[in-house]
C-alpha cells in the first residue's frame, strides 16, 4: 500500500502541475479538496477522474462515490487497490 501511495502522490503532482510540492509534502490523510490539505478545485477533480481512468482503469461516474474516494490520498489508494483493472 505504501508503494501505491507514493506512486499516487507523484502522479497527482505531475497531472495537476503542482510544481512547488514534493511527495513528502503531501499529508496522506489530509483532505484533497477545500481550504485544508491540498486545496484542490473542480478542474483538479476532473483531472483526478481521468487519472483514475487512464492509469488504473477505474471509471468514476457516481458523484457521491467520487466525493468519498477523493477524501484523501489514503482513501484513494485504498479504493484503487481494491478496484483497479490495470
Amino acid at each position: 500500500m505504501e508503494e501505491l501511495i507514493q506512486k499516487l502522490k507523484k502522479e497527482i503532482i505531475e497531472v495537476l502541475n503542482l510544481e512547488d510540492i514534493k511527495p513528502e509534502d503531501i499529508d496522506t490523510n489530509a483532505p484533497l479538496f477545500g481550504d485544508e490539505g491540498l486545496g484542490l478545485d473542480s478542474i483538479d477533480a476532473l483531472e483526478l477522474i481521468v487519472l483514475m481512468e487512464k492509469n488504473y482503469g477505474i471509471k468514476l461516474q457516481d458523484p457521491n462515490q467520487g466525493k468519498e474516494i477523493f477524501k484523501s490520498i489514503s482513501v484513494m489508494a485504498d479504493y484503487i487497490s481494491k478496484n483497479r483493472t490495470k
Binding site: 479538496f33 473542480s42 477533480a45 476532473l46 481521468v50 458523484p63
Partner: peptide, 9 residues
C-alpha cells in the same frame, strides 16, 4: 459538490 464534473465526464 462538483457533481457536474462527474456528469460531464
Amino acid at each position: 459538490d462538483m457533481s457536474h464534473i462527474f456528469m460531464m465526464n
